[in-house]
Amino acid sequence: MYSFDIERPTRLADAVKLLSDASEAQALGGGQTLIPTLKQRLAMPEKLVSLGAVDEIKGICTADDGALCIGGGTTHADVAAGAGAYPALASLAGNIGDPAVRNRGTIGGSLANNDPSACYPAAVLASGATVVTSSREIAADDFFDGLFATTLNEGEIITEVKFPVPEKASYAKFEQPASRFALVGIFVAKYADGVRVAVTGASEEGVFRWSEAEAALSSDFSAGALDGLSLAGDGMISDLHGSGDYRAHLVGVMTKRAVAAAG
């Protein structure tokens, strides 16, 4: 790793200030992706601002409108244990990485990184969640901006994610055999006003909504409603672990399984 200073503020306001004061400062969530990146010397911050001691962005609660609110600094393990009001989300969190990763990695860190194979982006997009930051609120549909890119500004910290709780939902992940990240992951969420389907792992553009599936499922929430629907392999990630065509095929299979599991 390159040399850098590390700060460990306990208040959000201090974290925001530290990030804005230094030109090459970077926020450190759980570090489960950032630290390996630093080891490869693929990033060169002057200062890391650890959010690990900022208690005000941790925790889970229910808003007045029924949305499940998860602090940006909440670990995957805490979401798995505490998001019982949204079982599909808790289940997703409980299958990210491995137990030790789940004890460190945070929802805010995962979303800010927007790995194209990460699980959380699918949940956020399929739930039509709202990403709350240190300066504003961003709708899920406006948050993700391609591979490893979001509409977050420099120094902006994810403080909370507000998930409207659906009537039914499920996440179906098909794991890449080595990394165990999603080769394809499908989050299906059924709300009173329609069904949202988000796909992670598959597209060269990152997480996306499968609108044809949403339309079909909105009128008939059953696996059979997806018969005949398929995605093209063009634009899908193609690598050692699977061609674009294979990923496109898996999207169909795993979407059906997600719908079946959602009941």
């Binding site: 590390i6 460990r8 489960q32 460190r104």
Partner: peptide
């Protein structure tokens, strides 16, 4: 893997300063 405050973590994926 070690335990930090009772939880398993990967000690190669955590800075010493964070274990203050």
């Amino acid at each position: 893997v070690v335990h930090v405050d009772g939880k398993a973590v990967k000690s190669c994926n955590m800075f010493a300063a964070e274990a203050e």
